[in-house]
Each structure stands twice: as structure tokens, then as C-alpha cells.
Amino acid sequence: MSKLDARTKLLLVIIVTTLAILATDLVYLAIVVAVTLLIDILVRADMNKIFMRIWRLFTVIVFISLVQSLTIKGGKPLIYIGSTILLSTKGLIYAGEFLLRMSVIILAGTIMSTCKEQEILDGLLKMHLPYELVFMTSISLRFLPTFRQEFSSRLNAIAIRGISIKRLALIKKIKLYSYLIAPTISGSMIRSKQIAMSMQSKAFRAYRSRTMLADPILTVFDYFVIIVSMLAMALYLYFMYTLGEII
């Protein structure tokens, strides 16, 4: 499955993320997470990278889940002071749902990371999307790593001023990041502008049709995966709406 076309992988991502949005129950969501993880394994995604990503976001996700669980009332009260409910069963379920949905997003993103940027762009072009739109997608795909690289370089620049970032108090850290945001964004935008200029210098948009270097073709296996995944999605939705909420 690692050799699946980028369009097939894109469809799989669309299916799992749609199901994650539609699923209104912890059990259904857990199924989506399990399926997405299975797809990740089958497309040979870098599992270490997945766990690193989840680990990095873990505290943020847990914090947001905690806030959700405290702000959403309903169900059986679990922790309360007098008449004030601090934690209820509904709050806990919402927190769990948030956790699972975030996991689906991270896992689904990793499916696409097994494709090369060019494969995605070629796939989008084959789907008859306007070249301008694909070009903008290409720029935005490059913007994120550029932004990350810029930000990391600026953090290094701070560290080499003799500042141990990890040891700074939270308020100082916020002040420090405020110093970094403007130059990082402007630096990334300058780089994106340079890419756009370089594309224009290569006669981008000079002709209506362009010759593609690679011509991605959907294989029989791609069609098989597409049909199976569509059927699985239909079945999933059928059972979800007929059985209703489990928890």
C-alpha cells in the first residue's frame, strides 16, 4: 500500500477526517482512530515521527481536554463543590472525543507525509484542478517548512546570545517569542515571494496548457482501495446512524 497514488491517499485522508467529524460517540471515534492507525502502518508511515508528534502535542491536547471537561456540564456529576459541578460524565466524554479527533488529524496528516510534495501536486493537476490553485498549494506546502526552519533558526539565534530558553520564566518566554514572531513571518514571506518570483521567471502562466514531467496513473489496486474505502465509509455511516450512540 506504500505505493498508492497520492490521490488515493488523499481520498483516505478525506474519508477518515470526515468520519472523525461526523462520529458523535467515543466508540465510533475509537474505530476511526484504529483504522487511521492501520492505514498509517500499511502505507509505511514513519511511526516514530507519529509518536513524536503526538507526544509533542500531548500536554496541549490534555490541557484543552481538561478545560473542555471542566466547562461542559451535563450527565452525572463526578467532582463537585456544593452545587458547583467541576467535572461531569459529559465533560469527560467531550474531552475524550477531542483527544481522539486530534489523534485522527495527526495520524491522517502522516498518511500524506508518505507522498512527495510533487506527487501531491501532480495528483491535484490530474484531478483537473486549475494550475494557479495547485501552484498556490505548492507555495503554501513550502511555506510551513520554511516557517518552521525560520523559527528554529531564530530560536538558535536567541540561544547563542547566552539565553537558556528552557530556564526562563513563562512571562519572559512570552516576551521572547514576541520578538521572534515578526521577523519569522516576514522572513518566511520574503522566501515565499522569492519562490513566486522564480516561478514567474520560468514563464509560469505563459501558456494555458503545460507538459507534466510525471504522469501519475491510478493502478487497479488504487481503484480497489478507493472502492473498498468508499464502501467501508458507507457501512460505517449506516451502522452509526442505525445503532445510534453507544456511550
Partner: peptide, 8 residues
């Protein structure tokens, strides 16, 4: 050491 300490 971290980079901050080395940079001193």
C-alpha cells in the same frame, strides 16, 4: 550544557 550555557 545547553546552547545558552555554551554561548556564555
Amino acid at each position: 550544557l545547553d546552547s545558552g550555557q555554551i554561548s556564555k
